[in-house]
């Protein structure tokens, strides 16, 4: 099953990237995730691994994922090493010069060899997962835009501060 959601955020790609690439901040904006923990010493970049759990119906469904693409600030992709088969990608593209960012979140999941029950389960779970993706991007946009507004206000204050006379 392949699902996607997108959103346009009022902030440059570099600012959005800081959020999507920060392993410690994932649980703050991902909806449905109950765990996102680095596994091993490598925290970021290609090869970094995380243990991820998502609440689906009666259980938390888990995977060990590994980052397979890391092109700051445009592409972040991962694939599962064990657990439920999963591939995902954050795709960031600049809009309006560099003032805004179009964010696309893609997620493909399933269990190879599960046959008809696997196909049915993927479709039954799709409603929940689609809702998770939409809420994740909405929350990401809210947090990034809040951070962007805070940073711009701080910069304005800095400019307006009276110069000290020596």
């Amino acid at each position: 099953m392949r699902l996607r959601a997108d959103v346009t955020i009022d902030a440059p790609p570099a600012v959005v990237w800081r959020f999507v690439a920060d392993p410690r901040g994932q649980l703050r904006f991902w909806s449905g995730l109950t765990r996102y923990e680095p596994v091993g010493r490598r925290l970021t970049g290609v090869g970094a691994r995380y243990r991820v759990l998502m609440r689906l119906g009666p259980v938390d469904v888990g995977s060990l994922i590994e980052l397979v693409e890391w092109q700051a600030p445009y592409e972040l992709a991962w694939t599962s090493v064990s657990g439920v088969d999963m591939r995902g990608r954050f795709r960031l593209r600049a809009r309006d010069g560099d003032r805004r960012t179009h964010v696309e979140l893609r997620l493909a999941y399933g269990i190879a060899g599960a046959g008809l029950t696997g196909w049915i389960a993927e479709h039954v779970a799709a409603g929940t997962v689609r809702g998770y993706l939409r809420r994740t991007l909405n929350e990401l946009a809210r947090q990034v835009e809040h951070e962007q507004a805070r940073a711009e206000a701080a910069a304005r204050r800095q400019r307006l501060r009276p110069r000290q006379v020596s």
Partner: peptide
């Protein structure tokens, strides 16, 4: 692994299961 989706369907839809505290 190949039976997990079927068991997930059974747990979710038939028994409306809830497994907490794993």
């Amino acid at each position: 692994r190949e039976r997990l989706p079927g068991l997930w369907l059974l747990s979710s839809l038939y028994f409306r299961g809830d497994v907490r505290g794993l």
